[in-house]
Design a protein around this nucleic acid. Structure first.
Length: 116
DNA sequence: AGCCTGACCTAGG
DNA sequence: TCCTAGGCCAGGC
């Protein structure tokens, strides 16, 4: 049975948050990857915006684990403080140099819509 | 109500 | 191979 029906009622943001919460500790993913996971391949920009509102969500959303496809911390400027995002990632064992995640492909985690 | 912007990505020249 | 343009959905002015 298709799971899409159940979750389809949830708005784009809700899906994004759900997927974002599934990002394992010490892993990172990209906006576009999440966009695909929620069924909106071209709406990568929206994902970033959803992350902007992530802090308003009841459940914690690891927005710091979401970067662009290059592995660059493009959203770090939107975090409180200066290197908050980088510090959070480094705290999880991810090396970040000059806003660039090292071994990005190694830490990359491809999300998938809740089909479990 | 219309135009512009935004934590991006893919495609075409 | 680098650069330019368009698309995506929602919110602000």
């Amino acid at each position: 049975m298709t799971i899409q029906n159940d979750n389809n009622q949830e708005s784009f943001f809700e899906k994004v948050y759900e997927v974002a919460r599934q990002i394992p500790y010490g892993r990172v993913t990209s906006y576009g990857a999440i966009a695909r996971a929620v069924g909106a391949p071209g709406a990568a920009r929206m994902v970033g915006w959803a992350m902007n509102r992530a802090y308003e969500q009841k459940e914690y959303v690891p927005a710091h684990r979401v970067v662009n496809r290059k592995g660059l911390l493009t959203g770090k400027t939107h975090f409180p403080g200066e290197n908050t995002m980088q510090e959070l990632l480094e705290n999880e064992g991810i090396t970040v140099i000059n806003d660039q995640i090292q071994d990005f492909g190694k830490h990359f985690w491809e999300p998938r819509a809740q089909e479990d």
